[in-house]
Nucleic acid binder design. Structure first.
Lengths: 298, 298
DNA sequence: TGCCAATGATATCCAACGCATATTGACAAA
DNA sequence: TTTGTCAATATGCGTTGGATATCATTGGCA
């Protein structure tokens, strides 16, 4: 097929069975329409219409070709739709990095929401620690991050998308395990398990700040890089830890969660992206994600 | 989408990732190719390629659009295939009329063969007596007929596609029913059941000629318009009949078939079509059908 | 560091294509 | 026979898409 335009002419004439009316619908005059149909007929090698000055009908071949032409025009429309969606950032592939602790509540909820709002966007998911997300964003390996803490002074844009209270995870053997709630100051002499200060400096710093506000030192005796590891160690009786409450879905034997009474004992999940140089797609997805704003359906 | 040509350019450049080579493959020079890509990029509203003077890569959006473009080009190719098939008579819808006695052997075999040779042709089948087929052909109601006898002097083209011997169908009560074979002259005084001479004059005439060659009168006492009716009457003891041997598949109780010894006691099925004014499709199907020539797989 | 080869973009020109207007030709109804 | 309708033909023109020539950028290499 040489020209989609001619095909539109064919379909329109086939629909109207009248050159004059078809030309009108196509916003053109009748003679060139007749010409273009003739051109198409020589292209395919047979007559598409039987026409007298009184009536126009499709030939058998024209009838057989009509649905094929329709299909082609539909496909052309689909192409335009796709191009338009891509232009407005409503379609494409976007790479998302997220902390493993978001995998159980925040990420599933957000993803369900995004898939609904941006059905033509494909998401490529990777779990990364908060600090690795920053690196991956800056190097272009991911487009969006869901991090718990980001270091200050980057060129990244960030906004809180979900906030939750911290709870204290401790062994069922521990004397505090029967309490309804504990305060951070009560943890002064406890053995804490926390994030690796080399691999996750930002998260470590956030906890340190929480303790410093109470003139306490945050100095975990054991360090890990994932919440699941930390919880495993707690269950094994190696110490206690402050973790976001969404981690409560983990209930290994020997482990108990106790509320933390301090108002500021919270952890936020930030939506992070390159502020400059963000593609329309990224911008569009960030916009869709921020309208979600941590709503918690369950 | 405005132009399929531009889309071909896009796909080719995306395949080669090199404007010079792509232009070569497209049998054109490089500058207009660059131009057309630029035109396409303004049409869709975003860049399709990231290009330096050293290397060309698809943008994310270009990558997302590529499969859609491929689909569109595939559909275009399908359209061309269809047009070409229609032009050469390899596709379309063709209306076939056939005598009911061909429904049991000739028509199924022929149809199986045709579907294989012309997979894109749709067949619309109607049973019609030989003489009605002639009328339907001339009025354009059918395109091809499978008839046992056609009147002389029409503008129709006809060729034998299947020839079979006649057998004598008679009641098991009849004295000849135990014979291995009978000759036509032996039927001189028998009560015959034959075709209606008004509704099927050609078929009647053919039988009459067979008898006349032996100085016999063909004068059936009972007339019908379908072989199945005739056989039913024979089984009911109303008389005997000469029928094509393919009717032997009908074995109602009380009916027996006996060979006819006369060499010329045959019936042919003719492939009939309008000789002038035949569409390429009809011509093509006639050609395919005549190559089959009554081969009898079983 | 500076030159060269490779490669895509730009400039300019021209032929072909597709559209418009005006007119003709065919055909059916009054 | 006339008239009205409708598609086809004739002619002219602006736009598009192609070619050739040239420029600009960049990475490799001496």
């Amino acid at each position: 097929m040489k020209s989609l335009q001619r095909l539109r002419y064919f379909v329109t004439v086939a629909d109207e069975l009248h050159f004059g009316r078809a030309a009108e619908r196509l916003h053109m005059s009748q003679p060139p329409l007749s010409q273009q149909i003739q051109v198409l007929e020589t292209e395919v090698g047979f007559a598409l219409f039987d026409r007298s000055s009184r009536r126009v009908v499709l030939t058998d071949e024209g009838q057989a070709l009509y649905p094929e032409a329709k299909r082609l025009l539909n496909q052309s429309h689909a192409f335009d739709q796709m191009a338009s969606a891509l232009e407005r950032g409503l379609a494409g592939r976007i790479r998302v990095g997220f902390v493993d602790s978001a995998a159980y509540r925040v990420m599933p909820n957000l993803l369900r929401n995004l898939r609904q709002q941006r059905p033509r966007v494909e998401f490529e998911l990777t779990t990364l620690t908060s600090d690795l997300q920053v690196k991956a964003l800056l190097s272009g390996e991911i487009d969006i991050g869901l991090a718990r803490a980001i270091p200050p002074g980057t060129t990244l844009s960030a906004q809180s998308i979900h906030e939750e209270t911290l709870v204290c995870a401790l062994s069922t053997d521990h004397e505090l395990s029967t309490r309804d709630a504990v305060s951070i100051t009560e943890l002064r002499d406890e053995l804490l398990i926390g994030f690796n200060r080399m691999k996750s400096p930002s998260l470590h710093a956030e906890m340190a700040a929480l303790f410093a506000a109470r003139d306490l030192q945050y100095d975990p005796g054991i360090e890990a890089t994932e919440y699941t590891t930390i919880l495993g160690l707690v269950a094994a009786g190696q110490g206690m830890a402050l973790v976001p409450e969404s981690l409560r879905v983990f209930r290994p034997p020997g482990l108990r969660y106790v509320d933390v009474s301090d108002e500021d004992a919270t952890s936020r999940i930030m939506l992070v992206a390159r502020s400059l140089e963000a593609s329309p797609l990224t911008r569009s997805v960030v916009e869709a994600a921020s309208s979600y704003l941590g709503g918690n359906p369950e």
